[in-house]
Design a protein around this nucleic acid. Structure first.
Length: 357
DNA sequence: AAGTTCTTATTAC
DNA sequence: CTAACGGTAATAAGAACTT
C-alpha cells in the first residue's frame, strides 16, 4: 500500500522518520544480563565450535573499539578480541522485542514500514505540521521504548527515506537528528558515495575507477550525467542520480508481503556425503513448508555452495497453487540430485526456497 | 520476436 | 592452520528456453 510520494497531494514536502535500534541484538543481551555492560560483547556464531564458521550478527560499542563489526567472520572477531563475551543468536527473543517496539511506534504513527527487526520508516506528513513537531514525536517514541523495553534507539527525520536514514546514522547512538531541505547538501556532499543506500562496494569501485579517485564523495557523484549513470548501472543509475542530490521519491510502504521464503544451512564441515546432505535438505524443505503452508507456491529454488565458495542455484516453476510437502520435496530433490551428480566438489551449504504466487 | 524461465550479481540488515 | 566470509530476502540484468 502506497502512503505518499515525494510531495504529498498538496505538493507539500514530506516528513519522513527513520528509527533504528542501537546495536540491537547486543543491546538486548546487555539488558538481559547487565553484567556484560562495559565489556566487549559479540553476538553471533560460536567462535570455538567447529572451526568457527559464521559471522558477527551484532556487537556493542566496546567490541567495536577492537575493530569488530557486524558481518565480519566470527573467527576474525575472536582474533581481534579473544577475551570478549561471545553469545549465540537468540532470534526468538529479538523477534519478541522487535514486535513490542513496532507496536510502540505504531501508537504514534500508522504509516510505518518495517525494513528489519530493528529498523522502520514512518511517514509523518499527515501526523505533524513541521520538523519541530516531528522531533517532539521522536522524543516521545524514544522515551516510551526506553521505559517499556529499556532499550535505546536513534531517529533520523528529513524530507525523504534516504535523508532520514542518513540522519539516523548521524544520530547514533541514542540520538535524534533532523535534516531540513537546506541542510541536505552541506551534510551529504562530503560523505562517501557508499553512504547512499543501494551503493555497495562494487558500485563504489566502478565510480572510483571512472572518477580516478580512491574514495569518491557524494559531490563527485554529481559530476555524472543521468545518461552516464544509466549507461553504467542501468535502472539503478537513475536512482543514484537523484540520490546524489539528496532526492528520493520512494514511498513508505506499509504493507509488504513476502515474495519468497527459504532456508539455508552451512555444514559444520564441507561434505560430499549424499546421505548427510539429503537429510539436511529434507529438514529445510519441512521448515519452509511449515511457514508457507497456505500460500500459493509458483516455484522452488535449490541453492548449493561448494567448498570453494562458488554458489549456484537451480530453479523450477509450476502452476501457482497450494502444494503438499511431498510435492515440494520431490521438485526440490530433482534439483538437488543434479547438483550431487554434477560435481565432485565438497558442499559447504544447501538451501531451499519457494517462490510465492 | 516476444514472452517466460533460469541463473547470477549486488545490496542490505 | 598462515584468512575468512551466516542467513534471508529483494531487485535487476542477461542468457536460455519456448511458443
Amino acid at each position: 500500500m502506497i502512503s505518499s510520494k515525494e510531495k504529498n497531494k498538496k505538493g507539500r514536502q514530506r516528513i519522513i522518520l527513520h528509527i533504528d535500534m542501537d546495536y540491537f541484538f547486543a543491546q538486548i543481551e546487555e539488558r538481559e544480563n547487565p553484567h556484560f555492560k562495559g565489556k566487549p560483547l559479540i553476538v553471533g556464531a560460536d567462535p570455538r565450535e567447529g572451526r568457527g564458521r559464521g559471522v558477527v550478527s551484532a556487537c556493542n560499542y566496546e567490541a567495536r573499539k577492537y575493530g569488530i563489526k557486524s558481518g565480519m567472520a566470527i573467527s576474525r572477531s575472536y582474533k581481534l578480541c579473544p577475551h570478549g563475551v561471545f553469545l549465540p543468536v537468540n532470534m526468538q527473543l529479538y523477534k519478541k522485542v522487535s514486535e513490542s517496539i513496532f507496536s510502540i511506534v505504531r501508537e504514534f504513527s500508522s504509516e510505518i514500514e518495517s525494513v528489519a527487526l530493528d529498523e522502520a520508516y514512518a511517514d509523518l506528513t499527515r501526523r505533524v505540521k513541521n520538523f519541530k513537531e516531528a522531533k517532539q514525536l521522536a522524543e516521545k517514541i524514544k522515551r516510551k521504548i526506553r521505559e517499556k523495553e529499556r532499550l535505546t534507539c536513534s531517529v533520523g527525520i528529513s524530507v525523504n527515506k534516504m535523508m532520514a536514514k542518513i540522519a539516523c546514522e548521524l544520530a547514533k547512538p541514542d540520538g535524534i537528528r533532523v535534516i531540513t531541505s537546506s541542510q541536505i547538501f552541506p551534510v551529504i556532499d562530503d560523505m562517501g558515495v557508499e553512504a547512499v543506500p543501494g551503493i555497495g562496494p562494487k558500485t563504489k569501485e566502478v565510480l572510483a575507477e571512472k572518477l580516478k579517485k580512491k574514495n569518491p564523495r557524494i559531490k563527485d557523484g554529481k559530476l555524472f550525467s543521468k545518461k552516464k549513470l544509466v549507461e553504467l548501472f542501468g535502472k539503478r543509475g537513475e536512482e543514484f542520480y537523484e540520490k546524489f542530490r539528496g532526492r528520493d521519491k520512494s514511498p513508505v510502504v506499509t504493507e509488504r508481503k513476502a515474495k519468497s521464503v527459504g532456508k539455508e544451512y552451512t555444514f559444520q564441515e564441507d561434505t560430499k556425503k549424499a546421505e548427510t546432505i539429503i537429510k539436511v535438505f529434507k529438514k529445510l524443505v519441512s521448515e519452509v513448508y511449515k511457514e508457507t503452508k497456505k500460500r500459493k507456491i509458483k516455484g522452488v529454488t535449490v541453492i548449493c555452495r561448494y567448498e570453494d565458495f562458488e554458489t549456484h542455484t537451480k530453479q523450477t516453476t509450476f502452476e501457482p497453487q497450494t502444494y503438499s510437502k511431498d510435492f515440494l520435496l520431490k521438485k526440490g530433490m530433482n534439483l538437488l540430485l543434479k547438483f550431487l551428480a554434477g560435481s565432485n566438489k565438497k558442499i559447504r551449504l544447501v538451501g531451499f526456497r519457494v517462490m510465492i504466487k
